[in-house]
């Protein structure tokens, strides 16, 4: 049974696209059949983060409008054969995205893949609400920072009211993914702790991605971080998060890059 997952946040720049690419790749690395869909019409970037920017021929809007078949628009990853990308349009207006079109495409993708991962645009406008519309599961990407937490709370409200599931009286399964986390600063009281964010948002924790240079390196290279350096701290955090999405119950920890004596001392349990 295919699962539709939306990666969302409200606020921009918190790591939705990076997380979509990393979770999609991690699930594909485990043998799952995955498609990642870019809903950011006019500002597409998932193609770039996945290193497929020069292979885009047709896009989501072309399929919505019937100018291309879904199979023509899907781009298969060169490194992971069971990972595909459905890019957003870069030139069209976001009004070209229609509710009927999205519904049709998601239904078709459900038949072909195990996971349909929708990368939401920032904001709470049409693009974002259409990205979450058919979701079974939502990953809410949050930085331990006031404006990001506030926007996440708003998005949680939308997931509980504007989705297909909510309208049927069912729940969208919600998971919190904390990104850009700095254990040392949180310990010094300079940054919200995981516990604070969890208490405020009160949704279950999927994972904590530590602040790391590897994330920028991966996007520079156009490779998901789980492929560019699978042993790095963020990659391990994403791989664990992907396993939790598949139902495994793993203790959440914050992986560290430096495996020094102190580093391993502080890679302690957090939730």
């Amino acid at each position: 049974m295919a699962k539709v997952l939306v990666v969302t946040s409200g606020k921009g720049g918190v790591g939705k696209t990076t997380s979509t690419a990393a979770l999609g790749a991690a699930l594909a690395q485990e043998g799952q059949n995955v498609v990642v869909v870019d809903f950011d019409v006019g500002l597409r970037n998932l193609d770039l983060v996945l290193g497929a920017e020069r292979r885009v021929v047709y896009d989501l809007i072309n399929v919505v409008q019937g100018d291309a078949k879904l199979s023509q628009a899907l781009i298969r990853d060169k490194r992971l054969e069971n990972l595909s990308l459905l890019p957003a349009s870069q030139t069209r207006d976001k009004d070209a995205l229609t509710a009927d079109g999205v519904s049709r495409i998601v239904t078709e993708l459900r038949e072909k893949f195990d996971w349909v991962i929708c990368d939401s645009p920032a904001g709470i406008e049409k693009g974002a609400t259409l990205a979450m519309r058919h979701a079974d599961i939502a990953v809410i990407v949050t930085n331990p920072e006031v404006s990001s937490v506030r926007d996440s709370d708003r998005v949680i409200g939308l997931l509980d009211s504007k989705t297909e599931r909510a309208e049927k009286g069912e729940l969208v399964e919600k998971h919190l993914l904390i990104t850009r986390y700095d254990t040392a600063r949180a310990r010094r009281g300079e940054m919200l702790k995981t516990e604070d964010v969890l208490e405020i948002l009160s949704i279950p924790l999927l994972g904590i991605i530590p602040e790391s240079q590897e994330v920028l390196r991966a996007s520079n290279l156009g490779t998901p971080v789980t492929l560019s350096n699978p042993m790095s701290a963020p990659a391990r955090a994403y791989i664990d998060a992907a396993r939790r999405l598949r139902g495994e119950s793993l203790v959440v920890s914050v992986p560290t890059d430096k495996r020094s004596f102190f580093g391993s001392l502080f890679a302690r349990r957090v939730a």
Binding site: E145, G189, E190, L192, D196, I200
Partner: peptide, 15 residues
């Protein structure tokens, strides 16, 4: 004073 507790309190009231 560490700023994280301030952030936490402000968020709780606001939200």
């Amino acid at each position: 004073r560490s700023s994280a507790p301030v952030a936490r309190e402000r968020l709780q009231i606001l939200l």
